[in-house]
Write a protein that binds this DNA or RNA. Sequence first.
DNA 1: GCCTTGACCACGG
DNA 2: CCCGTGGCCAAGG
Length: 109
Amino acid sequence: MQQETLNFFDKVYAVAKLIPHGRVTSYGAIAKYLGAAKSARMVGYAMNGSSGKDVPAHRVVNRKGLLTGKHHFDGTNLMQQLLESEGVEVVENQIQNFEALFWDPAMEL
DNA sequence: GCCTTGACCACGG
DNA sequence: CCCGTGGCCAAGG
């Protein structure tokens, strides 16, 4: 009987891995898909442990399309470069055409 | 075992 | 959109 909390983290990783290229989603969207809409914070925290995993954390941004977590990456603009590498326009830590690139698991899945 | 911090979000003003 | 407040859960001190 493993811990449910660990399941939550694992779910976050699973959903993040399902994010298609050139698309982005928000912490709240993932949390809501997992049934924990109010636990959006935990999604970001889970991402903190995504280091070393196959989780594209750079595709997960906040609700405003802002790269709030770019400071947690190795470099300063690594997250932005990764997104631009997938065809996502990012200016001043903000994703351009965010609503069009937004990928909602609860909606698309 | 309590207190603070944190890659957030919703609501009210 | 900005500001303040509440909530949620986990990790670190």
